[in-house]
Amino acid sequence: MNPTGNDGRALPRAGRALPWALVTPALGWTLLFFVLPFIAMGLSSLTAHEGGGFTLTNYSQFFTNPSYWQAMVNSLEVTAIVTVVSVLLAYPFAWILAEQVPERWQRLALMLAVLPFWTSYVVRSYSWLLVLAQNGVINRALTGSGLVTEPLQLANTRFATVTGFVHFFVMLLTLTIFANLKQLSPSYRKAAADLGAGPVRTFLHVVLPLTLPGIMVGAFLTFVLCIGDYITPQILGGNNELLMPQLVMMQIGRRGDFPLASALSIILMAVVTIAYLACARWLKIERA
């Protein structure tokens, strides 16, 4: 019936200052330490490293210097591969956990599946380095079994970067897709079966379309987190090919060039924003 929802939010006459007193600290913090830094970064990106007035060189450099441009291409390629591979690996896994594992073991199975998710990500990347190193576990196993004669170059490659990323995002996506599958009312599946659909067709026509919005959200999250990560490519990929975050950090670390680092950060953010706007149509499905 009722306007209660509305009255519930009516101001108690205790004082109109109270609500502002409650929200101002959080808003102030966000303005001071999130919005203001952003403005500072924007202004900085428009100045030259050597000092002096307004300039667009930092941005024009990105488009004229092929190695900068290449870093963005690398980032986009790696992110795209990681997103697709992670979704393809995680979906069947989440499905098995949600459908094939007995109900009482599911919580445990899921907890185990995402346990390494909680290791520090510096440590996680380092662990992969151990596994993929020249004389690491995998190469020892391969040479030991005689499958290869020479150890393979696994670490410090794009393959290593992708592996490290996929490891993390498989866990993240398993979590989100599992939640999605469990939220699906069993009545849908029963109804489909009742109307004569076999398990395969039920999955294709009912389960998959209904979980697609969730997958899109997970994939977008993967994209955002992956493209902005510095640690994984730095530890596992080495400096053989640079990704955008590495490029940004390089400007600060080696040259102290804040203006250029700011400009590159803003370009990176712009790419994420464009990706968001491109996906917004699918991301909205979930809210509807």
Binding site: F33, F34, P37, M41, L225, D229, V248, M249, M269
Partner: peptide
């Protein structure tokens, strides 16, 4: 927003 960019902004500020 990725942590890198938040960190960058604070560093500049």
């Amino acid at each position: 927003v990725s942590y890198l960019i938040i960190g960058m902004g604070l560093l500049v500020l």
